[in-house]
Nucleic acid binder design. Sequence first.
DNA 1: AATAGATAGTTCAATGATTGAACAGTTAAA
DNA 2: TTTAACTGTTCAATCATTGAACTATCTATT
Lengths: 150, 150
Amino acid sequence: MPQLSIKELVDRYIDLTFAVHKKGESLVKEQLQSELSNDQFYTLKYIYKTENCTSTELAKVFDVKKSAITAVITKLWDQDLIERTRDQNDRRVVYLTLTETGLELYKKTEERIYNLVESIITQFEEQEIKQFIDTYEKVNNILTALQEKQ
Amino acid sequence: MPQLSIKELVDRYIDLTFAVHKKGESLVKEQLQSELSNDQFYTLKYIYKTENCTSTELAKVFDVKKSAITAVITKLWDQDLIERTRDQNDRRVVYLTLTETGLELYKKTEERIYNLVESIITQFEEQEIKQFIDTYEKVNNILTALQEKQ
DNA sequence: AATAGATAGTTCAATGATTGAACAGTTAAA
DNA sequence: TTTAACTGTTCAATCATTGAACTATCTATT
């Protein structure tokens, strides 16, 4: 049995990250049923999950300029899906939260994504997928460290 | 020690796919040093790796309309990075290949990406990362099957 | 052979997303 | 108090993507 070289591992990793992401995005898109774009969904999700979420933070996480975030936010705000609240101590800062409508739409679509991912994950032995996600988390930490060195 | 529920696994998986992809894209972008956009790089890569690559295939893999691919291809073609060759048996079909310049640029940037990914992968025990990539491959296969059902 | 339908790829106008630069308002530091 | 830094917005310019119409070609049916 031939030993797998580092080169082969690297190649497979690069190809897989691309392929898995593309297919995932396309399946997520179906679940959103044109009510939201993928990016709009991820934005709602991030705001929902994050205490005191700001534009600056979103710009960093989504890796786009702040003016792009303003556009995204304004579009969601126009649809009454999110609220903007000024920090009373630092009046430059605007906190983003979901409105009731926004929360409802988020929860509804989130559930569809959840079901999709669950249907994938439950095809594995618990031990295998748990190990996978643990390693994935380590990869994420390594990437974070690499980025901060920058 | 509390048992990890499916719900927690699903949540972590969803968050990780998003986070890892964003950070990866941002690090790849640095390596490309504004000579190519990420999508241009992936396009060159796909053409390089694929025998008899066509627009239709690229549109499917990148999940965009064929007119978008025409735009991408034309831009690379303008820079003399790729060639278009008509199939002599079916004259509707156009095959895409890298020019010498395209191949050179691809190889140069590919090497930088390779070094980046290698520096991540070699932080793991070989057994752990090998297992990770095997499971990743299975995830990819499941996604392919899901997409084909569509 | 003649026709109709499917397929590969392109064109082009319209739409959307992202950037870059300038800006207003606010805070922190010297 | 002045200066510098920071948060977020505006707006014009740029770039990517779509949708529809189109050309050229091939396949299947009669």
